[in-house]
Design a protein around this nucleic acid. Structure first.
Lengths: 117, 117
DNA sequence: CAATAATACATAAATATATTATGTATAAAA
DNA sequence: TTTTATACATAATATATTTATGTATTATTG
């Protein structure tokens, strides 16, 4: 069993799409299960993507024309690979930049102020 | 009219509680409207807290014993001041620390990888 | 002075999203 | 052979936010 910070779940919400776009901008194609494993590995299990959140998110990105999928048979199973469309690639770049901007703002907001002595 | 990044809203979700706890840990007491103005000012309008999100969030924090409120008449209007309880103060410290930890993880995850040449 | 904007709270309906649980099925490992 | 891992998906539930609406006082501006 992995220990997760209790409040982290709230913070992950809304970051999922950004994570997906980023991973797919660095890899030509990925499938859902692969994404969950990679996020787990890269974040040392600090960020865990549940399937109930992942698959609907991928479907939505595809319906928005940001991703395309192709089903690839592996043995007798079918793997669904996703890759960024041109539109998705453009958004991914901007989205990650904007996220960094947001993070800078949050760090500024949450940084300890020098107490008046 | 202020311009806001389109996707920022998703990211703000879930950070609201952390922002409230932080602001209240730096100010002995604050009221709702004051909080919205301060966040606006500190973030140069990048983060906007809507009333429909703020007041339920404050009520919930109070119901969880993290905040206490006192109603103070100002002229003929009533202002509702909130301040951290001891429990709230402890959580605020830990919550902000955990947030920074989460942010470090996200930065690592979203940082550009050196392309193999 | 009258209209507008700002201050200050609150809640309801609609929307969005995630969690949890469940379902199906193959493949590998113990 | 039983369990774990792989691999997709969705439904019920819970939670949270947006948007809109409501009420009321005070300050500003034309």
């Amino acid at each position: 069993m992995y220990y997760c910070f209790m409040y982290t779940k709230d913070w992950i919400k809304g970051s999922l799409r950004t994570i997906l776009l980023k991973l797919l901008s660095e890899n030509p194609r990925m499938y859902g299960y692969e994404i969950t494993r990679m996020v787990e590995r890269l974040t040392d299990h600090q960020i865990q993507i549940t399937e109930g959140a992942l698959y609907p998110a991928l479907h939505k990105l595809e319906s928005q024309g940001l991703l395309i999928s192709e089903k690839v048979p592996v043995g007798r199973r079918i793997r669904k690979y996703y890759s960024l469309t041109e539109k998705g690639r453009e958004l991914a770049t901007k989205n990650v930049e904007d996220y960094f901007s947001f993070v800078r703002t949050m760090i500024m907001l949450l940084s300890p102020k020098t107490p008046a002595i």
